Amino acid sequence: MFYWLMKYIVVGPIAKAIWRPWIIGAENIPPSGAAILASNHLSVADSIFLPLMIERQVAFLAKAEYFTGRGIKGWATKWFMKGTGQIPIDRSGGSASEAALNTALQVLGRDELLGIYPEGTRSPDGVLYRGRTGIARMAMEAKVPVVPVVMVDTDTMMPIGRNIPRVVRVGIVIGKPLDFSRYAGMENDRYVLRSVTDEIMIALQQLGQQRYEDVYASSKRNKPSGAEAVEPPFVDASASLPRTDAAPAG
């Protein structure tokens, strides 16, 4: 109930009036049944506009820190995250990674939509980076399709480090679902997991024509130039098109 209140009464109408978001390919989202929406990740606003622009409810896995803040800001962030369908996960690795995977599988087991950012973190510079294989494991264990999603200009609206969003029109492009049933029973093969993940990232790159670099985004944000991060066992569930002035009317 809270989700629908936020989407249709509180946040949705205001966000649509100010930023006039557009969407292409909404018909590619399955009308029923479980599926993973695999999106590039440019801004914290990505998790707001995608749920607002599709008919079905979608749950995103979000870092637990968003739900544990103190004071007015912490309360407001927690309230907003819960209201927009975010699910807190511990991203510290180890047993927490398995717990996050199980949470994702529970969502998919209820025939719901699950939103995932395969890069594991926001792109620091608008480039699409290498995907982490947690998404492949989820898709294969749950036996669900993966729908590629490209967010457009949300990084211009609210780039990393900015607290007040700019009034910039944003958009979403949704591609056709990817079927990985041909790999049934191979979800523990790390080479298959990497192959599936790379196929998802190729679909995202082709859909958005985004520049791609085959390194992890976290290596760009946390390491010296040229140093690549080691992939953890699970995707962090917490990327941009060339600028265009020819957004769809509406």
Score class of each variant (00 low, 15 high):
F2W: 10
F2K: 07
Y3P: 02
K7M: 11
V10P: 02
V10L: 13
W22I: 13
A26Q: 04
P31N: 08
A34P: 07
I36Q: 08
S43F: 10
S43H: 05
A45V: 13
D46E: 10
S47I: 15
S47K: 04
P51V: 08
L61N: 03
K63F: 02
E65P: 02
F67P: 13
G69M: 04
I72S: 10
I72V: 14
K73R: 14
W75G: 14
T77N: 11
K82R: 07
D90E: 09
G93Q: 11
S97V: 03
N102W: 00
T103N: 02
L105R: 12
Q106F: 01
Q106K: 14
L108E: 05
L114H: 02
Y117T: 13
E119T: 11
P124G: 06
D125T: 05
L128I: 09
R132K: 15
A136Q: 09
A139L: 08
M140I: 06
V144L: 05
V149G: 00
V150M: 06
T154N: 13
T156A: 04
M158D: 08
G161F: 04
I164F: 11
P165T: 00
R166V: 07
V167R: 05
V168C: 01
V173N: 10
I174E: 01
P177T: 00
D179E: 06
S181V: 08
Y183V: 06
A184H: 08
R190P: 09
R194E: 06
V196N: 07
D198T: 08
E199H: 00
E199C: 09
I200H: 03
Q210Y: 09
Y212E: 01
V215L: 02
V215K: 03
Y216G: 11
S218I: 12
G226N: 00
E228K: 00
P233A: 07
P233D: 03
D236F: 05
P242E: 00
T244F: 01
T244D: 07
D245A: 08
D245P: 04
D245L: 08
G250R: 15
G250N: 15
